[in-house]
Design a protein around this nucleic acid. Structure first.
Length: 419
RNA sequence: CGGGGAGUAGUUCAGCAGUAGAACGCUCGGUUUGGGACCGAGAGGUAGCAGGUGCGACUCCUGUCUCCCCGACCA
């Protein structure tokens, strides 16, 4: 990708009202743009990051049997009445009507929609278990959108739904998903606390949230200071207090912290299938309700959380797994044909080697601005070609998270990048 | 919904009861290119919206809308 055509350009000034790092840097770098409170456009750089995040999630979902599909976002009132959530979840749901007065909801989740599919398509224990997931927009009528892209009224979510013949099978899979989520967040570079929490408008059962400790987080969690212990509870269900002894490991103390919820899993049981008449026939011919669970991760919120965790005063420092590009190739003094030719040659070589390269080919931009933009956008490897690097025999390589650079030959570069 | 803050050029902001400014960005010309370069010449806003008080309102008052922060709420 040539940076001269990348949309949009970076900006120097922080957005007027921005407080959080994700808001400042994602906007300045041109990853996102705000339409209204809680509503964001994902721009080309941001889309590449979201694509990386989604692909990691997709791989882990497929690894635990997930089948990807896509569900509607506009739902009839009637299906929400079946579970009584038209009224119960009224405050978070955008409800609207058309010119004829028919009423609809914009999707804030998809349990009812998946359950409708299940009752139409599944009738035997032989059809179970079933695991389906999607990436789609969710609409939530947030009383207060906040934290840049962290809490929106419209956001991206990966939601997985599972259907089972028994509670035991559901709970076994629940643990499988928990492990898959830990793998996902590990690959994304996020340290998560698996936190006991309430089920909100989804279930009366306790659930588990995946929380990333952060001062900009909106949840308060109590957790064991012993990282090997892993005890963690959301304030809303907590039976412990800060400074108390951990009920799990008995030895360490409980700490209190703010955290960002990046994922949540729900063992929903049979409430939905009973209300929506989703039954299967077991081996003995008995008609039984299907056991159900749902599991969510918010990729847009994950992107914001990663920026909160990985930045310095100059900009973002993307983990390699989610960076929009692997290499930021900078030509200094591009109007000198020698520089331009050498840089283009390297760009072609790297691209052929299947590296994802953002090439700063701009001729009318100063060296200082190129470096500043590079730090802001935060691609892990910076490769510079300049008179200085050529005089030193090659190209200058620097990692975004390290201060020192080194000059290597073009041939050495590929090996160098292969780590 | 309660409390606080803010709406003036594309962006970030200043200013003033007497008819709108700066920086950055943008356009053109020229000089530049290792940490957000410089010179010159331009384009670009009628001040969130609606009332009110003034001879006169961007400026004062009232209402309203929007945005941000804290809280409440919340997959």
């Amino acid at each position: 990708m040539r940076q001269s055509v990348l949309f949009p350009k970076t900006v120097k000034e922080d957005p007027k009202d921005a407080q959080s790092a994700n808001h400042k840097f994602l906007v300045r770098g041109g990853f996102i743009d705000q339409l209204m409170s809680g509503s964001w456009s994902i721009l080309p750089l941001g889309q590449r990051v979201i694509g990386k995040i989604n692909q990691i999630i997709r791989e882990e979902m497929n690894a635990i049997g997930g089948q990807e599909l896509s569900l509607p976002l506009l739902h009839p009132k009637e299906i929400w009445n079946e579970t009584e959530r038209w009224d119960a979840a009224r405050e978070v749901m955008y409800q609207l009507s058309d010119a004829r007065g028919r009423e609809y909801a914009l999707s804030f989740t998809h349990e009812e929609i998946v359950m409708d599919l299940i009752r139409k398509k599944i009738s035997s224990y032989k059809d179970l278990p079933l695991y389906v997931y999607q990436f789609s927009t969710k609409f939530r009528n947030e009383p207060r959108a906040t934290g840049g892209i962290l809490r929106g009224r419209e956001f991206l979510m990966k939601d997985l739904y599972s259907a089972h013949v028994s509670e035991a099978d559901l709970m076994a899979y629940y643990e499988t998903v928990k492990e898959a989520y830990l793998k996902i967040f590990n690959r994304l570079g996020l340290k998560v606390l698996v936190t006991e929490a309430a089920g909100g408008v989804f279930t009366k059962a306790h659930t588990h949230e995946f929380q990333v400790l952060s001062p900009v987080g909106e949840d308060t969690v109590f957790y064991c200071e012993n990282k090997n212990c892993g005890f963690s509870q959301n304030k809303e269900v907590a039976v412990v207090a800060a400074g108390g002894r951990c009920p799990t490991c008995q030895s360490s103390l409980i700490k209190e912290g703010r955290a960002i919820e990046v994922g949540n899993i729900f063992p929903l049981g049979t409430m939905y299938s009973e209300k929506m008449q989703a039954f299967f026939t077991d081996k003995n011919g008995a008609r039984k309700p299907i056991w159900f669970g749902s599991y969510g991760i918010g990729p847009t919120r994950v992107m914001g959380t990663i920026v909160e965790e990985y930045h310095d005063e100059k900009g973002i420092i993307w983990p390699e797994a989610v960076s929009p590009f692997n290499i930021h190739l900078l030509g200094i003094k591009n109007q000198e044909s020698r520089i331009m030719e050498k840089t283009e040659e390297l760009y072609e070589k790297l691209t052929k080697a299947r590296e994802e390269v953002l090439w700063d080919d701009r001729e009318d931009v100063s060296a200082g601005q190129k470096f500043a933009d590079s730090d802001l956008i935060g691609i892990p490897w910076r490769v510079v070609i300049s008179e200085k690097s050529l005089a030193g025999g090659g190209v200058e390589v620097k990692k975004r998270n390290q201060a020192e650079s080194k000059i290597v030959s073009q041939d050495q570069l590929l090996n160098f990048l292969l780590r």
